[in-house]
């Protein structure tokens, strides 16, 4: 009888309590390239999103990467100064660029 009650309790709690404790979203180590300007990337990009977002865009022009950085500044209000904008753009173009300025 005890067993039966226990099973019933499990069944009722299972239906509406799939999130009974803290959920852990796994951490993924993306293979981001090291090099000049990486510090600026770590400081300014990683606050809001994983490196997956960067790698996912594929190789792009300098104009594309600058546009992306400016989107973060203008729309998402990333607190970046001119220096940070320059460093991140240069890093992105050097490591994830397609060689074209435009």
């Amino acid at each position: 009888m005890k067993k039966l009650i226990l099973i019933t309790a499990l069944l009722t709690s299972a239906l509406f309590a799939q999130v009974k404790e803290k959920i852990e979203v796994p951490y993924v180590a993306f293979p981001i390239k090291m090099g000049k300007g990486f510090d600026a990337i770590q400081t300014n990009c990683l606050m809001c999103h994983s490196f997956g977002y960067i790698i996912n865009q594929g190789r792009q022009s300098k104009k594309f990467w600058h546009g992306k950085v400016m989107k973060m500044v203008d729309h998402f209000k990333a607190p970046m100064d001119e220096q940070a904008i320059k460093e991140t753009t240069n890093y992105l173009f050097e490591h994830y660029g397609n060689g074209k300025l435009k």
Binding site: Q18, I23, E24, V25, P26, Y27, V28, H49, S50, G52, Y53, N56
Partner: peptide
């Protein structure tokens, strides 16, 4: 890498999850 309540899926980012 599997995410909570999910089977392995094509993954673009962990934070935010995509």
């Amino acid at each position: 890498v599997t995410f909570p309540e999910k089977r392995p899926l094509i993954m673009y980012s962990d934070r935010p999850p995509l």
